[in-house]
Amino acid sequence: MLGASHPLTEFEWSIVKRHSACTPLAQLEIEWLRKQGIPSSALAHPDLLLRADVHFRALRFAYPDEIEPDAEMERALILLVRDADGHPHDLAAWAPRSRRLATWCGRAVCIGNAMGPRLNEHGALPVYPSPLEWLQEGCDGIVIIDPVAASHELFDLGPIAAMGGAEHARELKALFEGLAPCIIAGTVLTSAI
């Protein structure tokens, strides 16, 4: 994904190294994901889906070497999150059993590329309610991790397609409620009207 013109920064390398240190999926995990309707291609593209035991704390997660030894751990799938230019940006952990979703660094507000191609006839950005649906659809569109931050990043990108049905659409509508551009009345603008 990265061109030769962009050497990785030290921070980007730390993300890649941490992702690479995670464990490959076990055959039973791959079979479970396939039974959920996830295509094989989504397990390795855009990046390899890996696993790790992590500790969730709100919208963030930590690895065992970053926390107290007696902290509660949960098995999660680890996704490398890239920015709009394809550079490593953060890691996301998704625990299918508890449906928890969080980031390692707190930088990513969603999984997927919000600036990527619009995939429906209305030019809308597909937003999925969880990584399961996103993976089932071959990683097209996004999954929101941090609703508050995402609402500010996404509100002016154009139409959004709630891919999780009517309830998901209501949740997204509530998320964007009250957001509008800041409008300032100035003497020049007022006199021109």
Rank of each mutant, 00 (worst) to 15 (best):
D65A: 15
A42T: 04
P147L: 14
I67W: 09
C182K: 13
L25Y: 05
M115V: 05
Y63L: 15
D47M: 14
L49C: 05
A71R: 15
L125D: 01
L179R: 12
P7T: 11
L43N: 04
D47N: 15
P126E: 02
E31W: 13
A108M: 01
A166V: 12
A161H: 10
G37R: 10
E12N: 10
I184E: 08
L48H: 06
P96V: 11
D140L: 13
K35F: 06
L59H: 08
D90M: 02
C182A: 09
A102Q: 02
P159Q: 08
A92W: 11
E121P: 01
H6I: 11
L119N: 00
I184N: 09
L179F: 05
E29L: 13
C105R: 03
D90H: 02
E171I: 07
P126R: 06
L25F: 07
A4I: 08
R170Q: 12
L91D: 12
S14P: 01
P39T: 06
I183W: 09
S14E: 14
I145E: 03
G141L: 10
F11D: 15
L125S: 04
R118Q: 05
S151R: 14
P46N: 11
M73A: 07
L179S: 07
C22F: 04
V143A: 03
M1G: 00
R100L: 08
L77A: 00
K35M: 08
R97L: 13
G116Y: 09
N120L: 10
L119H: 08
F155Q: 03
E31S: 10
K17C: 03
M73Y: 05
L101E: 01
H122E: 06
L157Q: 14
D83Q: 11
G112D: 06
T9Q: 07
G164A: 08
L59T: 07
Y128A: 03
S5D: 11
V81E: 07
L50K: 14
I144T: 08
S151P: 01
L91R: 08
L79I: 03
E74W: 13
L154R: 11
A161I: 03
